[in-house]
Structure formats: C-alpha cells, structure tokens
Design a protein around this nucleic acid. Structure first.
Lengths: 221, 221
DNA sequence: TTTTGAATAGGTGCATACAGCAAGATCAGG
DNA sequence: CCTGATCTTGCTGTATGCACCTATTCAAAA
C-alpha cells in the first residue's frame, strides 16, 4: 500500500492535465473519495494533491461541498495575460542560460510537427506541441523564480486558450507555425531576448483572440 | 476539538513569522507532533500548514527526517532579488488602483514611526513598519497575479534581510526613513509608477548591502 | 583501529473512523 | 398552492493507529 512521492506527482499531473484539457470543465465538482477509489489510494494523499492544485488556482476546496474547478471572469483573465506578457519580456533579461544547437534542433522538430498539423489537425497533437514549446522555452530561463512563475501562469491560463483553440481550430495550427518559426529564428541567432519578445507578442495575439470571442464582463463558461 | 479554517490561517501566519523573524533559523528541524501538541490540534491540519509553507519555499518536508527550514545560496538570493526589482517596476504599470488621501496618510504615519525608530531602535518595531509598508504598497497593485507574486517574494526574502538588519541595525532605520520619505512623495503626487520605481531602487540598495556582507558562493547561514 | 553491517529510535506518509458543515429534500403551516 | 423550518444525505475537516523511511548507534570483523 506504500505510495512513494512519485505516485502523487503522477496523480497531480494527471489531474492538472484533465483540468487544462477541459475533461474537468470549470464548475466541475471533484470528490476526494471518488478520486481516491480511482487511483487506488486513500483520501489523505488525494487531499495533498488537491491542495497543490488549489495553490495553483486551478481548483477551490469548499468545506462540506467538494473541490470545484475554478472559472475566471474577464478581469482575472486580463490580469493573467498581462502578467504573462511582462514575464515573457524578462526571459531574455534575467540571466538566461546559453542557447545551444540542441535547443534550435528541438524547436525545428516542433516546427515540423506544427506544419504537419496544419494539414491534419488533431487537438491532442496541438496540445502536445504547445506543451513541448513551453517546456523548451521555460528551460532557457536562468532565474529559477521567474521560471516558476512562468510555469504556473502557463498552466493557469492554458485551458482557456485550449477552449478557444477547440472552438476555432482552423487558424490555431497556422498561428502555431508562425510562432515556432519566429522561435526558431531567435534560437538560430542565439538571441534569448528575441525569444522572450516573440513569446510576448504571441501571448498578446492570443489574448486579443480570446477577448474578441468573449462578451465583456461575462464569465467564460 | 473543531478547528475552523481561521485557526489554521493563524497557525500558518504564526509559523511564517517565526521563520521570517529567525525564531526558526535556516536548518531548523520542525516536528509535526511537537507543533500539533503546541497548538492543541492533531498532526493532520499541521501537515496542511507545513505543505503551504513548503509551497512558499520557506520549508522542505523530508520523509523520515522532518520539516527543515530552508536556506538560500547566493544564486537563489540573487534570483529572488532580481525578480523583486522587476516586479516593483510593474507595480505602476499593470493597472494600479487609484491612490487616495488615506494611502498618503498611512505612509506619513509609518514615516513618523520610522523617524522615532532612528532614536530608539527596536527590531520588533522595525519589522512591523516594514510589514505595514509592504501591505500598503501591495494594496495599490491592481493586478491580482502580480500582487500574489509580490507578496510571496517578500516573505521568501524577508528573513535574510531581517538577519542583515539585526547584524547592522545602525543604518537600517535611517534607510527606512529615506525609503518611506520617497514613498510619501510618490503617493502625494498620486504617481503609482513612482511608488514602484522607489521600491525597485531600495530593493536594489538592500541587495547590494546583503551582497557586501556575504562572501561569494557561500550559504547564508 | 577502522570499517561495515545490523539494530534501533524517531520521524513522515498513509489509511480509516468519526465530527462538522452545506445544500437539497421533505413536511407542516398558512 | 406556496412558504419556511427541519431533516437527511453526502461532502470535507480532524484525530489517530500503523507502515515505512532515515539517520544514528553499536557491535563485530578485518
């Protein structure tokens, strides 16, 4: 019955992905007992995982009710996206690590996958490329504190972007190709500042797309 | 035996203050059973509090050993301080709330307390003024995400600054007067950007002081 | 004397029973 | 029929016993 720390990490990632991929849409009520039964463990480690998710602002635990997947109003979404843009601008400023040939190659691989995605779209593949691009860029960040914040904000906003991408999948694959093309160019020039500003720009473009699809002052779902 | 959510929040603040005020210096081993006995509750809610502290990077829970108060090497300290400076620069940029006469008066009160502190120094009073100034400025931040990050980084770095202030108390009271004077000036002009830049500057001054007192690449304690 | 191994003590991680809380269901009264 | 208080159900919060992990100690062998 012993569950090591790795097991709880797997459960955390599983639940986080389910929330980000809208398997658990905002407002969903999660029950500790049900999750415990599903993963074959007791409520205690499940509660620890839910507390971590709550700290990441993905869920809210309410006594006597359950653990509710959070939603965002337009103000909160704006705050997150504005912050993400500012964090992107810092990527190349706060002592980034040196860009290598391997980084460039990894981005070129992702670009190839994105190009194939234009002809043959798949939501799952889109998401995986997005994730990989995020991990690639996060790894360039030298400042550990910035990297943590960058990571948290990515997961905090991912599902709302994923939702928009699901609703209008025609353009997003092409946009991803454009974004990765710029990332490849910046990496080829070994210019971390350019990588950061590219990220800032496409985060801003994405936010504009989200706002256009959103009636003002209305909850998202 | 029922302990409401307020009680755990009190315990969290208590332990956080003990860590920040170096009642628990870095390396201290906290035991769940001992804390549970002290606060008259069981280990379960204590564990939840420690998990929150761990997420704030103030402690590290190690299986079979205990909960250890963290230390920082010079790289981590640099990362935190660089990030704090950048966050300060954003205070006036990311839609701050409007500055009121009450804000200015609160800062003037703090300035008066700081001036009295120069003649009659007290570590506890110094800390309380510092805390109040932080709360005052955090309250000006309009972007909720930035405010959370600002808050977390403050508590994450506070004890190392507090340690330096305890070692060399002669200058810090005067520096606090200078800082609050600038804050009052910025608030009087209703200039949130100026408030942010003032914070950036004094964070940078403080970091320089810390670095001067620190031998390079050595742990702090 | 040094080194290595097991035994031991004390800690966290987990499972589970019970207490307290919140929301909906139910029933009495108007 | 409608309204409001009460009851019921099911959830999270807490306490506690046990399993497992870690560091230390001590003894035995080289």
């Amino acid at each position: 019955m012993a569950q090591n720390k790795h097991t709880t990490a797997v459960i955390f990632n599983t639940l986080r992905d389910r929330i980000c991929l809208l398997d658990y849409p905002p407002g969903t009520v999660l029950r500790e007992a049900a999750l415990a039964k599903e993963f074959g463990i007791s409520r205690t480690p499940i509660r620890a995982v839910l507390q971590r998710l709550e700290h990441g602002a993905l869920v809210a635990v309410r006594d006597g009710v359950g653990t509710i997947v959070t939603d965002l109003d337009s103000t909160e979404l704006k705050d997150i996206y504005e912050m993400r843009q500012k964090m992107a601008e810092l990527i190349g400023v706060l002592s980034p690590r040196e860009i290598t040939y391997a980084d460039e190659q990894a981005a070129i691989d992702l670009l190839g996958r994105a190009k194939r995605l234009v002809k043959d779209y798949s939501a799952s593949e889109y998401w995986q490329i997005n994730h990989a691009q995020h991990a690639l860029i996060a790894d360039l960040i030298g400042n550990a504190v910035l990297r943590e914040t960058w990571d948290q904000l990515y997961y905090r906003s991912a599902r709302f972007w994923y939702r928009e991408a699901s609703h209008a999948p025609e353009g997003v694959a092409g946009d991803l190709v454009a974004e990765l093309s710029e990332v490849v160019r910046a990496l080829h020039k070994r210019d971390a500042v350019a990588v950061g500003y590219t990220q800032r720009n496409f985060i801003a473009y994405g936010f504009a797309k989200l706002q256009a699809a959103l009636s003002p002052d209305q909850p998202i779902s």
